[in-house]
Each structure stands twice: as structure tokens, then as C-alpha cells.
Design a protein around this nucleic acid. Structure first.
Length: 158
DNA sequence: GCCAACGTTGGC
DNA sequence: GCCAACGTTGGC
């Protein structure tokens, strides 16, 4: 089993939106970046877990944990001219973009903010989220990094 | 709202 | 294949 981090702009799709979704499950779609697409299509496996990260807030943070329940399959929003994610270069015959389905596991006891993660950079090591200028919306997390973050969750506030 | 970082596009 | 222009992301 592998670990990941999935970013979502809070105004686009929030953890509360996931909590309110049927079966607390959603398609992780609309990703239009090749590196992130490759992870979604080729690397995320059923049973993998991922941190749910909110960007675009005053205090960006990891707010929850989700689990992959369906592995990569074509992102049909690319086929829909009415969708904001429409991409006419993606076809049913040769889909360019892929998505996975994820299900809510649990909300974090408290948000683990980006600021707090930066404070623990030494122990987190080379954490993809903390790389300079990083914009990747699907990124890998090592088992050690996962454990550190979960450990921060139950420690005192930063 | 600003701006740095980064990805994509397209002319050559 | 290079690189300037442009658009987007995302922290602040």
C-alpha cells in the first residue's frame, strides 16, 4: 500500500463536500497536469490512502484522510463541453486525462497546517509538498512522512 | 491583489 | 529543439 497527498482548492471541492457526498465517495477529476495524471492513471492503487489537503485558504492544511476505492479510469469531464474541465483533445478512443475514486476515511482531529509541516521539515525530509514552487496536485508521501504527520495530529498544537 | 514558480504553447 | 510569451497555481 502506498500513500499520497491530494490537493483541492477549498472553494472547488472541500472535505465538507466529501462528507456530504453519496457514500462519502467522489471522483477525483479535473486534474490537467501530466505528472499528476500519470500518478492517477498508473500509480494510485485500490486501498492506497491519501491526505486531503486544502489549498487556497488563509491557512492551507491537511484536513483529512481518504482511500482509493477505484483505480485510474478516463476522466469523462474532459468529454463534456459544458464542463469547466472540458478538453476537446481528449477522446473516448484515446482519453488524455484520468481520475480515481476516493472514499472518506476520516477527518483529522485538527488541521495540520502548511506552516506546521514546514516547522517539521527536518524530520519530514524531502516532502514533495514542501518543495519550492511545488504546484503538483497529486503527490507521493512516504510511509515515514505519513507517520510523522499522523504523529503531529495527536501532539500538542504547533 | 500580488507575485514567484512553473507548465504549456507556438513561432522560428 | 530553443525560447519567449502567456496562463495557472497557490502562498502570502
Amino acid at each position: 500500500m502506498a500513500y499520497w497527498l491530494l490537493k483541492s482548492e477549498v472553494t472547488a471541492f472541500s472535505f465538507a463536500d466529501l462528507e456530504a457526498s453519496p457514500q462519502q465517495t467522489t471522483a477525483w477529476e479535473g486534474v490537467r497536469n501530466y505528472q499528476a495524471r500519470n500518478f492517477l492513471r498508473d500509480a494510485l492503487r485500490q486501498g492506497d490512502q491519501a491526505f486531503f489537503y486544502h489549498s487556497g485558504m488563509l491557512k492551507p492544511a491537511i484536513v483529512g484522510i481518504v482511500e482509493v476505492v477505484r483505480e485510474g479510469y478516463p476522466d469523462e469531464t474532459a468529454f463534456d463541453p459544458a464542463s469547466p474541465y472540458y478538453d476537446p483533445t481528449s477522446t473516448w478512443q484515446q482519453p488524455r486525462w484520468h481520475r480515481v475514486d476516493v472514499r472518506l476515511v476520516r477527518r483529522m482531529r485538527r488541521p495540520i497546517t502548511l506552516t506546521e509541516l514546514k516547522h517539521h521539515q527536518a524530520v519530514l525530509g524531502d516532502f514533495a509538498l514542501l518543495r519550492r514552487g511545488n504546484r503538483l496536485s497529486v503527490l507521493p508521501v512516504t510511509e515515514a512522512q505519513w507517520a510523522v504527520v499522523v504523529g503531529l495530529e495527536i501532539s500538542s498544537m504547533p
